[in-house]
Design a protein around this nucleic acid. Structure first.
Length: 767
DNA sequence: GGGGGCTATGGGGGG
DNA sequence: CATAGCCCCC
């Protein structure tokens, strides 16, 4: 038996240590920015394991895969490879994983499709059309947001009709039929074997609440210890699911929530601050710990952030402080135009790099809307500063990527009507709106999926031939999928459909970009198939199309592996939550932009914008620069905005250069930013796609590599891995999963490799 | 009935 | 400024 070391407890301050060691019963940790929240969470899990709790009895829910991954790797440093057995992931991905096993109990196929927001809107659009309603009044985004909020509050279509507030609200907005659309939407998704993002939560709740075959007791027994990160961002439904897991007769109520009400910035997707305020009422004997010492930022920054957040009324009482030195005062950059803002920020970055010896990766530019990234890209490129943009149009939302994905989706789930509609006439096969509309109408009348309709319907000669060929092609894909892995199927699909050929024939810059994106998708499928490393326990050996789809639909740009290149980070303030940088630029600090024009009418929304600003400020460790422009191109025209009200909430003593904020512009306008550059967006996005995951140094020349047969790998051997380098096989288990120690890997050198897919070459038989 | 080009409209944050 | 819907032509 290995000696258990508790030395990590020495790395904690008093409150942190109490929060880590108070293992039983409900615990609430209020954690200010930079207060060591992640450290507390990870050490708490490590401490649970060291105290004898089985790792698979621990469930940790976060909001990004990245956070979950980082947490796992940090736990591993304390407790070793046992950390892999902890259930850690986002709400959506953990529930998707459970539903893949249990969905049949609530009348969904286990390989259900996940509809993204575009799919959902498209479903709504079609319903609006078939109901002959005005699509301008019944705007799909608005309707979806109503449906989403209903689902997040556990209001079924039936209860929606009974709810006077909701019905009156819809009437007032001239959308009295919203409840009917909701009803039809639910039915349609069900018929398509599809869950939208909210369904991943809602159906999880339904599963537990309806409790077929006592499935709830199974998971209650499974998850004996719950930890929830960023609890202030949970919505009503998420909290209700947590209660289902935790609240039952004889339960120890082992739930630990960590959050900061001052950083609640997701109310637009249903998050409610009430959850954190209610927690102490919902559970008895809650142990509450407040982490108030900020270890991240210098005192000018902490003071400024405190000043700003004090303008908000509703808050949990706490005092964030730091014993760090004063540091540099906050710098404010004022410019005439958005273009000049880009230039000045780039100038300042150069200056800071020289003066303070910063690397690119120490620096971040944070903005309110993704559309603001362009000017900064232009000027960073002019100075040859490497950068990476996060967010914006996700890779998987690109048309060409979605087109190929639609074929893959329809292959995995023939009832996926959104996928069907997307590709029934792409690439062009001579099937027009008239025929497609007819199919949709028949499907609607008979409550069938489009694929079912197509298999039965009698058509005229021409469309009959076209559709017959299409069905035959899809059938060949299904057959292929049953025989081989996701990559081989995907390649087959890309060629057989003519997508590859079609894109190759387009030699324009955009066409080349599209082809590269499709190739990047194929590469990522290849990577998925060839990934021989076992990361978590369940089903990972499954290399099928539907498993691939599951992994990507819930992936966001931030979750992608970052190569270790030294780049300046450009991202929205929302995306920056949880991150820290030595130097932070918060840009576009103007009324109508930050705070957003969408929020100006309501004091609550202004408070949320202020919390967002607070999050932005507190990302900075040492240098904080705020900027605004007197004029900028917005919505295709020149706009003039006042400086943000938030700037005035920081007192002068924390600011480096006192600037007169209001109405200080001379009439001069510098040249506005036109297009100028080729396709900054495409270039910027490509930077994110580079698949190089591991240091170049570790990789060997594939030509010199000769793969050894999987069966020949035995314990004690020294092997070469194409990606990880030299390693020693420590053990091989019954499922043919080898644990191999790679000495070149600094973080977590012990990798669990699936020999079935292993790319290993035997270097030495034994020692 | 289907395909291509033009005009009009909307435009936040994200799983 | 990008996409969707519409209109016109084949």
């Amino acid at each position: 038996m290995q000696e258990v070391s508790f030395s990590y407890l020495d790395e904690l301050n008093d409150v942190q240590r109490q929060a880590v060691t108070c293992l039983e019963g409900p615990v609430m940790v209020i954690a200010g920015p930079g207060s060591g929240k992640t450290r507390v969470l990870t050490y708490r899990i490590a401490h649970l394991i060291n105290s004898g709790v089985a790792p698979w009895n621990i469930l940790t829910l976060t909001f990004t895969n990245k956070a979950a991954k980082e947490m796992k790797s940090r736990i591993e440093k304390v407790v070793g490879s046992k950390a892999n057995k902890v259930w850690a992931g986002t709400f959506h991905s953990i529930f998707a994983r459970i539903l893949r096993v249990e969905a049949h109990r609530i009348d969904y196929p286990n390989d259900f499709t996940i509809y993204d927001t575009d799919d959902s809107k498209s479903v709504i659009k079609e319903i609006v059309k078939t109901m002959s309603l005005d699509p301008k009044v019944y705007n799909p985004s608005a309707i979806l947001s109503r449906i989403s909020s209903a689902k997040s509050n556990l209001i079924t279509p039936k209860n929606y009709v009974k709810n006077e507030d909701l019905m009156n609200y819809d009437k007032m907005n001239r959308r009295p039929m919203t409840h009917l659309i909701y009803d039809k939407y639910v039915a349609k998704c069900m018929r398509a074997g599809a869950m939208d993002f909210d369904d991943l939560l809602l159906q999880m709740f339904r599963l537990l609440y309806q409790n077929p075959d006592n499935v709830k007791q199974k998971y209650q027994a499974q998850f004996q210890y719950l930890l929830v990160d960023e609890f202030q961002d949970t919505n009503f439904l998420q909290y209700e699911i947590l209660k289902q897991f935790v609240s039952y007769e004889g339960s120890d109520n082992n739930i630990c929530i960590v959050g900061d009400d001052a950083q609640s910035i997701y109310s637009f997707r249903g998050a409610t601050i009430e959850n954190i305020l209610q927690f102490e009422n919902d559970f008895s004997n809650v142990n509450t710990f407040k982490l108030e010492q900020n270890y991240r930022s210098t005192s000018y920054i902490v003071n400024a952030a405190n000043e700003v957040i004090n303008y908000n009324k509703k808050q949990i009482d706490k005092k964030i402080w730091t014993d760090k030195q004063e540091g540099q005062k906050i710098k404010i950059i004022k410019t005439m135009s958005d273009n000049e803002e880009g230039r000045r920020v780039a100038d300042t970055i150069i200056e800071q790099k020289n003066r303070f010896n910063l690397r690119n990766q120490d620096i971040a530019i944070l903005y309110r809307t993704n559309a603001q990234s362009r000017v900064f890209e232009e000027h960073l490129r002019r100075f040859n500063i490497a950068y990476r943009i996060y967010g914006g149009l996700s890779f998987y939302q690109r048309k060409e990527v979605k087109d190929l994905l639609a074929y893959i989706r329809l292959t995995a789930n023939p009832k996926d009507d959104e996928a069907f509609k997307r590709i029934i006439n792409y690439p062009k096969r001579g099937l027009g709106n008239t025929t497609v509309s007819k199919l949709i109408q028949i499907a609607e009348e008979n409550e069938m999926s489009l694929m079912e309709v197509v298999l039965q319907i009698e058509l005229k000669a021409r469309p009959k031939k076209i559709i017959g060929d299409f069905v035959a092609m899809m059938k060949s894909f299904t057959n292929k999928a049953a025989q081989t892995n996701a990559y081989d199927v995907a390649i087959y699909i890309a060629q057989k459909t003519g997508i590859t050929g079609l894109l190759k024939s387009d030699t324009s810059a955009e066409g080349i970009g599209r082809l590269e994106n499709v190739n990047a998708l194929l590469d990522s499928i290849k990577e998925f198939v060839e990934n021989d490393e076992l990361e978590d326990d369940e089903e990972v050996m499954d290399k099928s199309l539907s498993r691939f789809l599951q992994t990507i639909t819930l992936m966001t740009d931030q979750d992608k592996e970052s190569d270790n290149t030294d780049v300046v980070t450009l991202m929205s303030t929302h995306a920056a939550k949880g991150l820290e940088f030595k130097s932070v630029f918060v840009v576009g600090l103007e009324e109508n932009l930050f705070p957003s024009f969408m929020s100006l009418s309501s004091p609550h929304q202004i408070e949320e914008e202020r919390r967002l600003f607070y999050v932005a400020l507190t990302r900075a460790e040492m240098y904080l620069t705020l900027s605004y422009a007197n004029s900028r191109y917005q919505f295709g025209q020149m706009r003039f905005n006042d400086p943000s009200r938030f700037l005035e909430e920081i007192s002068e003593e924390n600011i480096d250069n006192i600037t007169i904020l209001r109405n200080s512009g001379s009439g001069m306008s510098s040249k506005p930013s036109g297009g100028g550059f080729g396709q900054p967006k495409i270039l910027g996005n490509f930077k994110r796609l580079e698949p190089s995951k591991v240091n170049q140094a570790l990789q060997m020349d594939p030509k010199d590599f000769k793969q050894s047969p999987a069966a020949s790998i035995k314990e004690g051997m020294t092997v070469m891995h194409l990606k990880f380098g030299l390693g020693k096989v420590k053990s091989v288990d019954a499922r043919r999963v080898a644990t191999i120690h790679f000495s070149d890997i600094r973080d977590n050198p012990d990798k669990r490799i699936m020999l079935q897919y292993a790319k290993l070459q035997i270097i030495e038989e034994d020692d």
